[in-house]
């Protein structure tokens, strides 16, 4: 039996990273986790840096999204991510360094530090590390 699907596209400024018919999309919105099934009502939400999952025929595909937003309309989910990558593409060392750097900047209490940006960087790094760990388990 063919499952009911929706079009899913994950697009970054640099390329289209995913485009397929899929069943379910799970993402971290600003207001909390959300899952999108086919025939969802039109929605536009901003996304937090984190893991985004797409399910197709029971198979999960995982992406790391560094913030962005998502539009749902006409049975189509379009994720416009600032940056997105597959877990196997993640440079764990780089993410670790980024995490340490961000933590140091937040801890330093230096008024020069852009706290918002440092926090965002920290979240991105954590999201990458989590996804990489999860991927490594499989």
């Amino acid at each position: 039996m063919a499952e009911q699907t929706q079009k899913v596209a994950i697009v970054t400024p640099e390329r289209v990273i995913y485009g397929d018919e899929a069943r379910f999309v799970q993402a971290r919105g600003t207001m909390g986790e959300l899952g999108i099934l086919p025939q969802h009502t039109p929605l536009i939400t901003s996304l937090e840096p984190g893991v985004l999952r797409v399910q197709k025929e029971g198979q999960w595909t995982v992406f790391v999204v560094a913030g962005g937003f998502m539009e749902v309309r006409d049975n189509r989910v379009v994720v416009l991510a600032n940056a997105a990558e597959r877990p196997e593409e993640i440079d764990v060392e780089r993410a670790k360094r980024a995490k340490e750097r961000a933590e140091k900047r937040l801890a330093s209490g230096d008024p020069e530090v852009d706290v918002v940006r440092a926090k965002a960087a920290l979240m991105r790094a954590l999201a990458r590390l989590n996804a990489a760990q999860e991927f490594a388990k499989h």
């Binding site: 919105g29 039109p42 536009i44 901003s46 937003f69 006409d74």
Partner: peptide, 21 residues
């Protein structure tokens, strides 16, 4: 799709926030 021109969207957190972003 002629009728879809004015779909009502749900905005999260709000339309304004999305616009600002």
């Amino acid at each position: 799709a002629p009728k879809k021109a004015s779909v009502e969207y749900i905005f999260e957190p709000s339309a304004e926030a999305v616009l600002n972003y």
